[in-house]
Design a protein around this nucleic acid. Structure first.
Lengths: 156, 156
DNA sequence: ATGAATGCAAAGACTTTGCACTACT
DNA sequence: AGTAGTGCAAAGTCTTTGCATTCAT
């Protein structure tokens, strides 16, 4: 039997808790709640979405803690910020190599593009320019398949 | 003799004014001032930087007008937004094909990467995913050559 | 025990909006 | 002349910060 999706996510969560500890951060309930929410989402979440979901796991989480926790995840390199219409969204970032996130403007779903496909040539261009990328993922904004179908349904 | 850099930019400005007109927008002094500033910058500017510079060309430009003008440029597809540390910056976007902007986190210089190099493979991946990109340029944040040298000088 | 992390609320930063006035077309 | 565009200031939204308290180590 294959391991279930939920098990693997729980596993990633444990790993992250260990990583926190190793990086000198304390492992607290609010932090675990926020991290779990971000990891399980499969799409970019706004801060209030994270807050709402995190409160289901640990009801007294505060807004400031969410911001502070996201900052921490950024520093560790486990999360990515996207700005969609002037508002910040956060998505998990699991692959350590530079890769692409295709982010849907409508539903905020994040599709991770297979790394090997495009990044090599880009890396080379950056090397030539002497540019050092400081992002875990490169965000491309657009519309996903599902949302496009939905739009066509309504129009057609 | 070769055409000077300034001439070519002025030319681009005229073209844009014509484009505005064609798109049904009025060509006003504040707009021209903002557009000229963004086009000439060669790097991403914050709104207040745009305001300050635009006022040198047309002193009574207001803050709201800058925001509204940038919105307009976005709609026409001539400008790009980047968020650096939670603050919005705007850069000009001249190539109509999807391409890369290497944006330096420190000096906000924008290096345009030769389109043909990487985009084909990415386009194909997006097509496979049914994803439709709605950006003129893909922004990659990092540190440029010049800023890295500057840092090394200070540290070494 | 001790200081990092938290929650709350207040302060701050950035952006948008309403409205009377200006100036393109 | 008519209306899109403007400037100002007020309102709105998102984010950060100060401080007393809690909790992980």
């Amino acid at each position: 039997m294959r391991q279930s999706r939920s098990d693997s996510k729980t596993h990633a969560l444990d790993d992250l808790a260990a990583a926190l500890n190793a990086a000198g951060y304390r492992v607290t309930k609010p932090r675990l709640a926020v991290i779990e929410v971000v990891l399980r989402a499969g799409r970019a979440l706004s801060i209030e979405e994270i807050l709402t979901r995190a409160r289901r796991l640990h009801p007294q989480v505060g807004l400031a803690t969410v911001y502070r926790c996201i900052d921490m995840l950024d520093r560790i390199g486990c999360s990515q910020h996207v700005w969609i219409n002037g508002k910040g969204y956060v998505s998990a970032c699991r692959d350590e190599r530079l890769h692409y996130h295709l982010v849907c403007r409508r539903c905020h779903t994040v599709t991770e593009v297979d790394v090997a496909v495009c990044t090599d040539a880009l890396q080379q261009s950056m090397a030539e320019a002497g540019f050092y990328a400081q992002q875990g993922a490169i965000e491309v904004l657009g519309t996903c398949q599902a949302c496009r179908s939905r739009i066509e349904e309504r129009v057609g």
